[in-house]
Design a binder for these strands. Sequence first.
DNA 1: GCCAATATGCTTGTACGCAAGTATTATGTT
DNA 2: AACATAATACTTGCGTACAAGCATATTGGC
Lengths: 138, 138
Amino acid sequence: MKAEECIFFQLAKASQAGTRFWLKRVSLLGLTAVQGVVIRFLHDNDRQTSSELGKKTDLDSATLTGVIDRLEGAGFVQRRQNPDDRRSIRIHLTEKGREAGEKVAELMEEANRAFLKDFNVSEEVALRSLLSKVRESG
Amino acid sequence: MKAEECIFFQLAKASQAGTRFWLKRVSLLGLTAVQGVVIRFLHDNDRQTSSELGKKTDLDSATLTGVIDRLEGAGFVQRRQNPDDRRSIRIHLTEKGREAGEKVAELMEEANRAFLKDFNVSEEVALRSLLSKVRESG
DNA sequence: GCCAATATGCTTGTACGCAAGTATTATGTT
DNA sequence: AACATAATACTTGCGTACAAGCATATTGGC
């Protein structure tokens, strides 16, 4: 087997290509690739705790702390304590965050179409299904 | 479109799953996931320059500097100047590096089989082909 | 031979990704 | 009420990723 044929290598490089493509667009909103995705998840479901967000985005809690720090610093979100359980902190979108969330949602639709423009329907379905299977089997 | 359906997200999470799987094995040799792949590429083709290695592995030169620093510190490789072009530096595997390269090559075969054990031949071919197409279209 | 353009490798600064560990708070058992 | 256990978010340390910029060395056009 050649090194280039390693499935882990191929997955990593395909992912890198996707992230670079996405970053080019979302950076226009002042967000990184990961920040854009997190805002997008919050846009679907505002005021989640960081552990809920971590499960959905598959981001480590240590990673998420930093991501939220930077989003809070830039004014997209706010941390709010839950009076009923003082361990738990909910992440609230600010007005700026909600507006960004709208734009990210549109951008994401467009970027997905653009990225997959050379894939026909059955190829796209196969790709998504195989990636999902990879994720489960890992 | 839901956030989970974003192709960039799906690619990143599939790649993460692969990297975690690979890391579990290669870390037994005292290597990280990326270091293992770099050693594997050097095992195929020793004494490359870092720019050649960067092209093949699709690693940024800044990233590669750090990776090689750590591999050199751990005694797997050595940097050697080329007398004919003093800008160029070749990365030589040490004896320890060659032995690790052998083991990494075996481990990579085994890990690829194990990771893809639930994929039949046509699924595996489709996955690799689609990932390659993703990389090109990015 | 001279000089601009190019190539090579490195450094710095910012942002994930993850293992390991901490502090605080909640919960279940007795 | 007292205690061990668990959950939540955070911190630290290390290792990629990548943009931007630097120093050095080579090359092509004149």
